[in-house]
Structures are given as C-alpha cells and as structure tokens.
C-alpha cells in the first residue's frame, strides 16, 4: 500500500478515505480527528469529533456546547478501529491535551504530528516519538536560525526586569491557550510567588488548566485592580492586547512577548516588543530534525511553516520528503475576545 492511498491532502485538510475521516479539517466534515484545541486546528461545525478529553473540553469552552454534532474522547495510547484503519493518539508536548495521530493500515503507519515540541513543559504531557513509515511534521520554525534556548533563563530575564524596574507594570504577551499557562508555571518554578494578573480573555482556559491539576499559584483578573497597584506586577495578556489602548490601565507598561518568533530581532521590533522572551510551544530546528530522525520514517511530509528548508534538509539526509502545501494553519488569530490563536 502506498502512503497516498492511506492519506491525501485535500482542500478540507488531510483526508483518510479508508478510515472515513479528516485530520484537523479547516471546513466542516462528517468525521474529524483533532490534534489539539488551537483555533487553526480545531474548528467548530463537524459531524463527529474524535480528540483527547482535554481538547474536547477546551473546544467546548471556546465554541460552546454545540461545537460538534457528536464527540468521542480518546486516551493517549488507546487504539481505535475506524473502518479499515487503526488509529491511536500520542502526546505531542505542544499544549494540554495535544496529540499526534497515528494511522495504521495494511502494515503502513503514518503519523500526523499536528503542532509539537520536544522541549520540557510543566503544563502538558511530554512529546513521545512514535515510530512510523511516514511522518508528517510541522515546520513553523523550520529554519536553522530557530534554536530556542531553555525557557528558564528567558523567564529569569523577565524577573530581572521586574526587579530593575519596580515602578513599571510588566505586560507579557502570550497566546492564551498553552503559552500563558506555561509562562505562569515557569514563573512559579523560578520562585516567583506574588499574584500574577490575567487579561479577561485568558480566564476560562487558565481555570481549565488548574482544574486538570496544574498548579499556577495565585491568579487575579487585572480588570479588578487599580492602576497604581499594578506597579511591579506581571500581567499576561493575548499579544494583540499588549499593543492596544487596553495597556493604558497600566503604569509605564513594559511590553514583553513570549514566542519563538522573538528569536528574530526584526520580528520583535516590528511588534514594538521591549523584552522579547524566546519561549516557544513548537519544536525548533534541532527539535524538528532530531524528531524526524528518531521516528525512523523513510518519508517525510512537511506542512505549515518553512517547508522549503526542512524538505531540503531531509533530502540531504537521504529521506524522501515533500511539502504538503496545506492552507489554513499557523495563522495567528489573536482576537482578544475569543482568545483563539495558534501558539508559536
């Protein structure tokens, strides 16, 4: 059996005809398998949605109770049979509940990894390498200039700045699903035990994380606090809010942004970021290339991001590789009202 008999890119997303489903479809379909709850992967309006419990819960938080006709939860490692295809979900290390989806049929296994990272993250299950024949990898940071440092020293930069500028409010732009909670957890690990303030758009997802047993310490909503009392504090907000009139409620705000994009100076400057924090929820170049090798796959399909460089690299390693040219992923939807976005 050839890989393209099992899975093909279509305008609606990756389609598995033998199993009768799509993966992370961008248009409403009969049966959708969803890797994780970021809005560019998880969209409302499908007939049946199969995903991890966390992904289903967070889709419900964002889109309301009727986000799908029917839902079915699957645990990491559990195998289900969908028509002729065996399907299993495995931790992707990207955000809470994020999964890679493995499809096996007639001895051929394809793994669609969705978004993933192999760096440590106290707020989600660590990435697991799933051996396969064809590995579908993202390429958000698919250039060798993207090498994310350890997150701990990045968080220390933020704490140093709070110490040096105690009269200023530190605003940290962070995507509200995953990144924000990870930054909070990292701050706690670094010994910061003062209350951390939140933009309203982050409230429900953050509470959900806490309800899943992730301890985040004392959190307060910023809207309840007087301006003067915000001096010397740390507030997390969706990135779009940090360049908005919303920031006027803060005393002399200092804008930080936690993202893999912050590795590139022009990107940080363009956003007017004063304190770039290179903290990413996607694998960096070393992570992508190491993971590709570790899967043992002989064929690599590359999607959303810098496909060209990663495809080139695969070929220099003697691996068959091609870009998938899927559209609709990796576009940051930062609207503060929904908090929906893809974490970078």
């Amino acid at each position: 059996m050839r890989p393209q008999d099992l899975l093909v890119p279509t305008p609606a997303g990756l389609c598995c005809r033998l199993g009768g489903f799509h993966i992370d479809p961008v248009r409403p379909v009969e049966r959708a398998l969803i890797t994780h709850a970021h809005s560019d992967h998880a969209r409302p309006g499908h007939g049946t949605v199969l995903a991890t419990q966390e992904t289903l819960d967070m889709m419900r938080l964002r889109y309301g109770d009727n986000f799908a006709g029917r839902t079915q939860a699957i645990r990491y490692g559990e195998t289900l049979r969908l028509d002729d295809v065996s399907v299993s979900f495995h931790p992707a290390g990207h955000v809470l509940g994020s999964a890679q989806i493995a499809m096996t049929c007639n001895g051929l296994r394809i793994v669609a990894s969705g978004d993933y990272k192999d760096a440590p993250d106290p707020t989600c299950e660590p990435f697991e390498v799933v051996p396969c024949d064809v590995f579908i990898t993202e390429a958000t940071f698919g250039l060798p200039v993207f090498r994310h440092p350890d997150a701990a020293p990045e968080v220390r930069k933020l704490l140093d700045s709070v110490r040096l500028f105690p009269e200023r409010a530190h605003l940290v732009g962070a995507y509200s699903l995953g990144k924000a909670q990870r930054v909070i957890a990292l701050l706690r690990t670094a010994g910061y035990d003062a209350p951390i303030y939140l933009h309203g758009a982050m409230e429900s997802i953050t509470h959900y994380y806490e309800s899943r047993g992730i301890a985040l310490g004392e959190l307060r909503l910023v809207k309840d606090i007087k301006k003067a009392d915000l001096a010397g504090t740390i507030t997390l907000a969706p990135p779009s809010a940090t360049s908005d009139i919303w920031t006027r409620r803060f005393p002399d705000p200092l804008t930080a942004f936690a993202s893999g994009w912050m590795r590139i100076r022009a990107r940080a400057r363009q956003r007017g970021v004063e304190l770039p924090l290179v903290i990413s929820d996607h694998a960096d170049w070393d992570g992508l290339t190491a993971t590709i090798k570790a899967t043992g796959a002989g064929e690599i399909w590359v999607t959303h991001g810098e496909e060209e460089a990663l495809v080139h690299w695969c070929k220099t390693q003697g691996l068959a590789a091609r870009p998938l040219a899927l559209v609709g992923y990796g576009e940051e939807d930062e609207s503060a009202s929904t908090g929906g976005e893809d974490a970078a």
Binding site: E54, S88, H90, G97, A102, C124, E125
Partner: peptide, 10 residues
C-alpha cells in the same frame, strides 16, 4: 495527566 501510556504502539 491522562491515562493509558501502556498501550503505546500496540
């Protein structure tokens, strides 16, 4: 966070 790690790669 979720159970079922033992069924990996069945």
């Amino acid at each position: 966070l979720a159970e079922g790690g033992e069924e990996v790669a069945a």
